[in-house]
Simulated assay, not measured.
Amino acid sequence: MNLNTSFPKTIYAIQHLAFEDLGSLEDVFYQLGFRVRYFEAGVDDLSPALNYEGLTIILGGPIGVYETEDYPFLIDEISGLRQRLKDDKPTIGICLGAQLIAHALGANVYAGEQKEIGWSELEIKNVEQNILSPLKNTKVLHWHGDTFDLPENATLLASSAMYPNQAFSIGKNILALQFHLEILEESFEKWLIGHTCEIRNAQLSIQQLRNDNYLYAQDLEQKTQNLMRSFLEYLI
Rank of each mutant, 00 (worst) to 15 (best):
W191S: 14
T224A: 12
K172A: 02
S169V: 00
I174L: 02
N201A: 10
K172G: 00
W191C: 06
K172F: 00
Q222D: 00
S169I: 01
P164L: 12
I183P: 13
Q207W: 07
R210D: 13
T196F: 07
W191G: 09
E186R: 15
N173T: 07
L220P: 11
Y214W: 07
Y163P: 02
G194P: 04
L175G: 08
K172Y: 01
D212M: 00
I193S: 09
H195W: 12
Q222H: 05
Q218P: 03
N173Y: 03
N201F: 12
L175K: 00
N213Y: 11
H180C: 11
A167P: 05
Q166E: 03
D219S: 13
Q203Y: 09
T196E: 04
L192S: 07
I174W: 06
Q203P: 04
K172E: 06
E189G: 02
Q203T: 11
E186V: 13
L175S: 09
Q208A: 14
Y163S: 15
L175P: 02
Y216F: 05
D212P: 14
G194T: 00
D212G: 12
I206T: 13
N211G: 13
M162E: 15
R210Y: 10
A217F: 00
Q203H: 13
L184V: 13
F168A: 03
I174P: 06
Q178Y: 06
L184S: 14
I193P: 04
S205A: 10
Q178G: 01
T224E: 10
F188Q: 07
N165R: 02
N211H: 06
Q208M: 08
E186H: 03
N213D: 07
E182M: 14
Q178W: 11
Y214M: 11
Q178T: 10
A202M: 03
Q218Y: 00
A202P: 08
D219A: 12
S205D: 08
I183M: 01
Q207H: 13
G194F: 14
I183T: 11
M162H: 02
E198G: 06
